[in-house]
Structure formats: structure tokens, C-alpha cells
């Protein structure tokens, strides 16, 4: 238990001339829920994608469970690091059940009956057992995102990445997704979450990282960052978020 589950050292990534990540350092212990916040273009999504190598880092080291991810087989790495997308990205031609089953069958090599059983369990876990045979286009956005979470969970990931999981959702559907994420956090899932949901951060996050211009400007427990941020930029950003949320929910 001494080693952190995830350790990121001096991570750098450029797209063309633009350096999007300019030396990122952080660690995650098992059961940690770390929330990444920051203005758009600050590199949050790129950071997540570097962790499961959907984007290849230019420089720096990332280790998962003591293993250098750059040396791992990329498919093997991704099996261990689940990802939930902003746009859900469900397989449109497959039912909810088959969306969850595909990885079990084709990546983990489960038998038909094992797959069936496990897919059922995961859909149950996100409260969608009764929608198992619905196709994505027949589900609401909130339901689709919960299937997306079940699909990721089925791979038994050591770490789950969430890339703005609720920002494509209508306000009234955000709650059901956040509550599933809250349950996962309570169950001890290690989660790295890009989100601007202050409520979720306040209740579930062990740490909050504030990303600005490709670096981590400030980090700490959410209450500390919300109440007494060190940097003016953090304060301004969080104040704007608070105002926005008050406008939305109030």
C-alpha cells in the first residue's frame, strides 16, 4: 500500500506549436477521488487521455500500480483504466446489455454465460437492469451515461477516468449520473474526474486540482480551495462557477 496507484511526473504534451500540458505532477492513492477543474483549454481532457494513452505523452512518466504505462501494451493498459466520455459514445447498434458485454467477450474473453451474468450485474449497479434491451437512441442522456459507466466498470478497472461526464446532459438528468458516481466513490473506486459540478467535488472529492494553462496551479481538499484559494485565478474561476450554479439551480 506504500506505492501510489497512479503517479504522474513532469507530463508534457504539445499539439503542433501549442504546448497543452506543461509539466504536470500528481499522485493518486487507491480509493482517491480527485477532481480536475479549470478553464476550457487548460488541458484537462488531454491529461486524462494521456493517462490511458488515447493520446501519447511527449515527455514525462506515468506509472500505474508501479508499472510504467509507456512500456505497457496499450490495450492492456486501457483495460485497467476505464473511461467515461462527455458524449457517452455508446455503441449505437448495440443494446445496453451488449454495450456492456462487448468488452467482456472480446477483451476479457468471458464465456457467454459469464458475460450475461456480469453485464446484468453492472447494469443493476447503475440502476438500469430494466433497460438492458434498449438501444442507446431509446434511452435518455442520463441513462446513456449510466450505461457508459457500466461499460467501463465491467472491465474491472483499477482507475476510472471521467471526462466531463455531465456537461452534455440536460440539468434535470445530471443528478442521476452524479449519484451513481457518488456511490462508486463510496464503494472505494479510484476516480479521476474532470467536472465543474461543485456539489460533487465538495461531497466526493478527496482532492481538487485546479488546472490553468497546462500546469496545476493549485491543489488541496475541496473545502480549502473553495473557501480560501491561494491564487487569484482560482478564486475568480470558482466564484464564476458558484454564480453559474446558483443561477442554474436557484
Amino acid at each position: 500500500m506504500s506505492d501510489p496507484l497512479l503517479s504522474v511526473r513532469d507530463l508534457r504534451k504539445s499539439f503542433g506549436e501549442e504546448e497543452v500540458l506543461r509539466g504536470i505532477d500528481f499522485e493518486m492513492e487507491r480509493r482517491d477521488v480527485q477532481v480536475l477543474m479549470g478553464p476550457s483549454g487548460s488541458g484537462k481532457s488531454t491529461l486524462l487521455r494521456c493517462v490511458n494513452r488515447l493520446s501519447e505523452p511527449d515527455d514525462g512518466t506515468i506509472t500505474l500500480d508501479g508499472e510504467d504505462t509507456a512500456a505497457m501494451d496499450e490495450n492492456d493498459l486501457r483495460r485497467q483504466v476505464g473511461m467515461v466520455f462527455q458524449g457517452f459514445n455508446l455503441f449505437a447498434h448495440l443494446t445496453a446489455r451488449k454495450n456492456v458485454s462487448l468488452g467482456l467477450r472480446r477483451v476479457r474473453g468471458f464465456s457467454k454465460s459469464e458475460t450475461e451474468e456480469r453485464a446484468e450485474e453492472e447494469l443493476e449497479r447503475v440502476g438500469l437492469a430494466d433497460q438492458a434491451d434498449s438501444y442507446p437512441a431509446e434511452l435518455s442522456g442520463g441513462q446513456q451515461q449510466r450505461v457508459g459507466i457500466a461499460r467501463a466498470l465491467a472491465m474491472d478497472p483499477k482507475l476510472l477516468l471521467f471526462d466531463e461526464p455531465t456537461s452534455a446532459l440536460d440539468p434535470e438528468l445530471i443528478g442521476e449520473v452524479l449519484s451513481v458516481m457518488g456511490e462508486l466513490a463510496d464503494d472505494g473506486m479510484t476516480m479521476l474526474v474532470v467536472t465543474h459540478e461543485m456539489g460533487f467535488a465538495r461531497e466526493a472529492a478527496t482532492d481538487l486540482l485546479f488546472l490553468d494553462d497546462g500546469t496545476i496551479l493549485e491543489r488541496g481538499p475541496p473545502t480549502q480551495l473553495f473557501e480560501s484559494p491561494e491564487h487569484e485565478r482560482t478564486a475568480t474561476f470558482l466564484r464564476r462557477l458558484t454564480d453559474l450554479e446558483a443561477g442554474q439551480h436557484g
Binding site: G82, M83, G103, V107, M155
Partner: peptide, 15 residues
């Protein structure tokens, strides 16, 4: 076909 779906397939470890 939305390229996000292939990304999601890769993200669960499919080649």
C-alpha cells in the same frame, strides 16, 4: 459513424 465510438472501443481495450 461517430469517431467517438471507436475511441470508446479502444478505451475498453479493444484493438
Amino acid at each position: 459513424v461517430d469517431p467517438g465510438q471507436l475511441r470508446a472501443a479502444r478505451a475498453i481495450g479493444l484493438s
